Structure formats: structure tokens, C-alpha cells
Simulated scan of single mutants.
Amino acid sequence: MPDLILHHYPNSPFAEKARLLLGYKQLAWKSVMIPAIMPKPDVVALTGGYRRTPVLQIGADIYCDTALIADVLERLAPTPSLTPPASAGVARTLAQWADTTLFWTAIAYAFQPAGLQAMFGSLPPEHLQAFGADRAAMRGNAPRMPVQEATASLIDYLDRIEAMLADGKLYLLGAQPTIADFSVYHPIWYVRRIAGLSAILERAPRLLAWADRMAAIGHHQYDKMTSTEALEISRNSTPMAVEAAGEATLLHLHGIALGDRVTITPTDYAFDPVEGELVFASATELALRRVDERAGLVVVHFPRIGYQLKSALEKAAA
């Protein structure tokens, strides 16, 4: 199997989720460090415009969003399972809540003045301004949740998670971690790293013990790789064959057929469309083929939930 190449940076919560998933699956991987803010020319060469972190590269196949990355790793290493049959539905639903509602609540709480000082106080003012401008652009300049509401909501969420760990339960849904644990963990990991603000977690001792167990999973074995090397691997690789599962039902909802020029765009933030030829559409995944002068022929994959599929003709008309 080609190398698993994770494009990430150390402080990204979703990157920590992916690193821990690789550790849980005991999969060796290559680590490519990328910028925390735009521009990200080497990332964009691979993705066609998608700018979120992390991105998983396997040869010339590029996987966006940790929801899909988790599914890819599950296919590569089915044991131990992230979605055991007895709890798969609730695990996925809880994971989706954590990756959206819990994540944005934790971010709003963390980005209060004391949190910003703790995280970025040593940076020159122009770097802090650049980071703020980048994140505002990612949100489409939508306002962040006020700190007071974020704090109140986070307290409620922590109490709910604490209750899930009652009666000696080691993980959220039982004796073994599921995808829910990894999705709930990364916002907690982020808050826990902020001096002063992490005290909010002390109200949930069972949660803190659970977080220690999650952290102990580790990141397994990885070696450093440069983005130049990753682009060379992409350029010299051929995308894996894909099967158009479910297109008869799903694609007719859009009036789009395989082979059409399309765009795929996140629906919640970082609204950067990726354009290419649609090659795959299932109930859970979309993929398009594109050519880049540096990355070569690539297939970029997205989860179905949280992304919008459109005909590229709509973009041209707009």
C-alpha cells in the first residue's frame, strides 16, 4: 500500500483527531507540516482549493475532512473498529455533533482574550492579525459565538459527557473507543492545552481521566516528509479505481451525471469550491478528478454530509 501522508500542523484540533486515529489503528504514516493560515500553495495543488486541516494523501488520492479520513482508515484497518455494529449509529451521530457543535463551542470559549494571550501572546502583532483575518475569512466573516454563551454551553456539554462516563465506563459508549470518542476528544484536547482556561474541565473528573486514556493511544510511528516530496509522490502515482456506488438514486437528485464538471464546497465554513470531473458518488462520499500542473492527475474525496455538489455550469453562470 502507498504511504499514508498526513498534511497537518501541530496545534490543529482536527489534525490531533487524525493523528490519534492513526495511532489507534497502528498505521505508520508520513508527516507533512503545512502552514496554519493561507497561503498554502502545496496543499491547494493537491486539493484544488480545499484549505482545511488535515488532509490525508494516499498516492494520488486526496481525502478531505476527518469524517471521511476516519472511514478510509477503517477500511484499511478494520480492527479495532471505530464503528462496531451495536453502536455504529449512535457513534456516528455523536461524532457529528462533536465535530460541529462541541468544536465551535470550544473554539469560541478558547478564543476569548485570555485564551488568545495564552496561545499567541508571544507572537508579533502582525502575525496575530494575519491569523485573525484568516480565520474570519474561513467563517465567511460570520460572528463567533459570544464568550458568555460559549462558556455556559461548554459547561453543559462537559456535564453531559461526564454523565456518559458514569458507572466506571472507560469510553463514551462502552469498553472500547469508537469514532465518537475521537471526535469528542479533540475539542477537549484544545481547551486543555490553554493555561488558565483549562480549569473549566476540572468540573468533570471522569472526563479528564477519559482524556488521559485517549491521549495514551498516541500517534504510532511516523516519519517526516516535505511537501515537495508529497507532491512528487502524487505526480508519479495513479489514482485508485473508484466505483460509482449509488449514482442511480443519489445523482438524479442533482441532475448531475458521472463525468460532468462539478464543484464540491463545504456548507459550514471555508467556502472554497473544488472543481473537477465527478467520478464517484455514494450515500457517504463524493469524489472528483482534476489535473494540477504540480500534483498531476488526482482524485479528491469528500464526505457527503457537510458538502454541496453543484454543476460547474452553475458556477460559470454565476
Rank of each mutant, 00 (worst) to 15 (best):
A180L: 09
A118W: 08
S122A: 15
Q57P: 14
G48M: 06
P2G: 13
L207Q: 10
A60C: 06
L288A: 03
Y307I: 03
Q129L: 10
A215M: 04
Y269L: 13
S12W: 03
A175L: 08
L208W: 01
V291E: 14
L128A: 14
A98H: 03
Y24H: 12
Y190M: 14
L313P: 09
L46V: 00
D71E: 14
A316C: 06
F302L: 05
R193S: 15
V242W: 09
L21C: 08
I305S: 14
Y24L: 01
H220F: 14
I194M: 04
G89S: 04
T53F: 01
V90D: 10
A106D: 08
K25D: 11
H301F: 06
A316R: 11
H220W: 08
F271C: 02
G276F: 11
F111H: 15
G306N: 04
M119G: 07
A209V: 11
A283F: 03
P124I: 07
L46F: 00
T100R: 10
H219W: 11
L46I: 00
I161S: 06
A175P: 01
W210I: 02
R75V: 03
E202M: 08
S31P: 13
S183R: 00
E74V: 06
L173H: 07
F182Q: 05
A245E: 12
T226G: 10
R203L: 00
G89A: 09
F271D: 10
A142Y: 06
R92K: 15
A45W: 00
A108R: 09
V242Q: 12
P187L: 05
P143R: 07
P84I: 02
P80T: 02
E16Q: 11
T249E: 13
Y63E: 00
R160F: 11
M119F: 03
A91P: 13
L208A: 07
W210L: 01
G140L: 06
A245F: 03
V242P: 11
N236D: 15
A230K: 02
V44N: 11
L250D: 09
M1K: 13
I200H: 08
I62R: 04
A204W: 00
E202T: 13
E285F: 09
P266W: 01
K17G: 05
P143Q: 06
L170V: 14
T238F: 07
T83I: 07
H127G: 09
I69L: 06
T267W: 01
S122E: 15
